[in-house]
Computed example of a mutant assay.
Amino acid sequence: MSLTTQFYTMLAMIAMGSIFGASLDTYNRFLQRGKRKKWIVFINDVMFWLIQGLAIFYILFLVNYGEIRFYIFIALVCGFAAYQALMKNIYVKLLEAIINAVISIYQFILRLFMSLIFHPIKWIVLAIITLSITLGKVLLSLVKMIIKMLLWVLKVIFYPIKWILSLLWKLVPGFIKKSVEKFYSGFAGILEKTKNKVMYAWKFISSIFYKK
């Protein structure tokens, strides 16, 4: 390995040590260990260290084709120490500022959406539903009133007819009355039998498709 390659390797590993420090602070800021369960923290820690190791090895592979030397670890420690001493406070403040800015923008967009889109649509939908229910009640009342009026009119119209028919029925000979009554009884019996068969068929079909 040439001196130039070794120098680039040192610089890359110092940079990766600093990046590792920033990544660790970012990871701890978002993880919030005190609020997480232990198994979740464990899984996240394993994933974090695995990703960091792969990233460092990838940079090392780009610089010197993955050759590992003792000074590489020293460079990583130096980069991490330099970050802790010189850049940590600045980075943490910058990270908090970015997080707060993102939260503020998100809350502003959410309030804007709620004010300009969600609430107007909600009130319009509620107004339409209320108006529909009110119109439905009014129409139902009108229909009931019309039906009552029609029944009253029909009752008035058919009352004389019923009275005339009752008088005519009294004038009908007895043997005709008996024949009509017999026919009516037979017809009623047929209707009853048909009704029973239909009900039996419906119960049979229901027992097939529905379990008790």
Rank of each mutant, 00 (worst) to 15 (best):
S2V: 01
S2F: 04
T5V: 14
L11M: 12
M13R: 02
I14L: 12
S18A: 15
F20H: 13
A22N: 03
T26Q: 03
R33Q: 13
K35P: 01
W39S: 14
W39F: 12
I40P: 03
V41A: 12
V41S: 09
I43V: 15
D45C: 01
F48T: 03
Q52K: 05
L54G: 06
F57T: 01
I59H: 06
I59L: 13
L60K: 08
V63P: 03
N64C: 10
G66S: 06
R69S: 07
Y71A: 05
I72C: 13
F73K: 01
F73E: 10
I74F: 15
I74A: 13
C78R: 02
A82K: 02
L94H: 11
N100F: 11
N100T: 09
L110F: 13
R111V: 09
P120I: 00
K122N: 08
K137Y: 14
L142C: 12
L142S: 06
V143T: 04
L151V: 04
L151P: 01
W152D: 08
V156N: 05
F158L: 06
K162W: 06
K162D: 10
K162Q: 05
I164W: 09
L171Q: 11
F175D: 02
E181F: 06
F183N: 11
S185P: 00
A188S: 09
I190P: 10
E192C: 05
K193F: 14
T194R: 08
N196F: 09
V198D: 02
F204K: 14
I205W: 12
F209Q: 01
Y210Q: 09
K212R: 14
K212C: 04
